[in-house]
């Protein structure tokens, strides 16, 4: 599928936090390191990484909350650092968790935040509330809202007034399974029906696999993987094939498709290999045509999770990195 125009781009984005107050002054933490990220119009983009990888700092820089040490953020071609902050007019976002004035009603909160973007009509406000299913509770104080309702109100706030890009930091964090499903369906609907571009960070790899068409994985302040999910899947997903004469089948696949099957001995010997761009159905057809009896062909169920675990460091490692700095 041809890529549309970039809506959010980071170029050489870098953030170095220097030790303040009584620090030695020589030590510093590179939270984000020369980050190149591109989100195209119409994308539902998943942003993954372990805790401390630099996701939140990146999102905060993309929203003008944190000033980059180097590099730039462009939204719809407009540099965020041009001084006008006009680029943010195209963005609806929440960071970490949606925050509201608990002593005011949901409606008044939306009015306030939309007002800071220039204001919206009562009809637009009602539409946003209706969209997230909060019309009936709009005049209750936010203090009595459940976590899920606050999350949905956060999404309603993002919809006002008329964003082109939604940036959501852990939108399903802390929600129960019903809440998670509601938010996922809402995001899908916003992307599919309203044509919004969605950039979401998440810890749920399955969520990213289900919702997103493109993704990036970040660790130690750098992207270690970025691209369209279906291409990444073709490249990295592994296939488990149970066949007769497995050693010969492995040799056949090595010669025919350049794959590198590994023979796994067990009760039921099988070949295990990354598809490297090949399609599972083609592998199956080739094996059958060559006279190998394929008994089972199983795509790896959690390929993204495996890549994530293989290529990123643990939370403790990232936290230790910060502590050392």
């Amino acid at each position: 599928m041809p890529l549309s125009e970039p809506l959010l781009e980071t170029r050489g984005l870098t953030k170095v936090f220097r030790r303040r107050f009584f620090g030695s002054g020589s030590k510093h933490l590179v939270a984000v390191d020369n980050l190149e990220l591109t989100v195209y119009r119409g994308d539902v983009f998943g942003f993954l990484g372990p805790n401390g990888a630099g996701k939140s700092t990146t999102i905060r820089m993309a929203l003008g909350l944190i000033h980059p040490t180097q590099g730039s953020v462009h939204i719809a071609g407009r540099d965020l650092a041009d001084g006008t902050r006009a680029a943010l007019a195209k963005v609806g976002a929440f960071v970490e968790r949606p925050a509201f004035y608990p002593y005011l009603t949901g409606r008044k909160n939306l009015e306030i935040f939309a007002g800071l973007s220039g204001g919206v009509s009562v009809r637009e406000l009602d539409e946003a509330l209706d969209r997230v299913g909060l019309s009936k509770r709009a005049d209750d104080k936010v203090a009595v809202y459940s976590h899920g309702m606050k999350q949905r109100l956060g999404i309603a706030a993002c919809l006002l007034p008329r964003p082109e890009l939604m940036i959501l930091d852990e939108p399903t964090d802390g929600l129960d399974p019903h809440g998670i499903r509601e938010v996922r369906e809402l995001l899908l609907s916003l992307a599919r029906d309203d044509g919004l571009t969605v950039f979401l960070s998440s810890h749920f790899l399955g969520e990213v696999e289900n919702l997103c068409n493109r993704a990036a994985i970040m660790d130690h302040g750098q992207t270690i993987l970025q691209g369209a999910l279906d291409e990444l899947e073709r490249e990295h997903r592994r296939l488990r094939v149970e066949t007769g004469r497995p050693a010969e089948a492995a040799e056949f696949l090595r010669g025919k498709l350049g794959l590198e099957p590994r023979l796994v001995d067990g009760q039921r010997p099988a070949l295990y290999f990354a598809l490297k761009g090949a399609r599972a159905e083609d592998v199956n057809a080739l094996l059958v045509q060559a006279g190998f009896a394929v008994r089972a062909l199983t795509p790896e169920p959690a390929w993204l999770e495996r890549i994530f675990l293989e290529r990123t460091t643990s939370k403790e490692s990232n936290v230790a990195r910060k502590a050392e700095a």
Binding site: G64, L65, R85, A86, A93, F100, F113, S117, A157
Partner: peptide, 8 residues
């Protein structure tokens, strides 16, 4: 931060 992510 919710205020500052607005174009203000």
């Amino acid at each position: 931060r919710a205020c500052l992510i607005r174009p203000l």
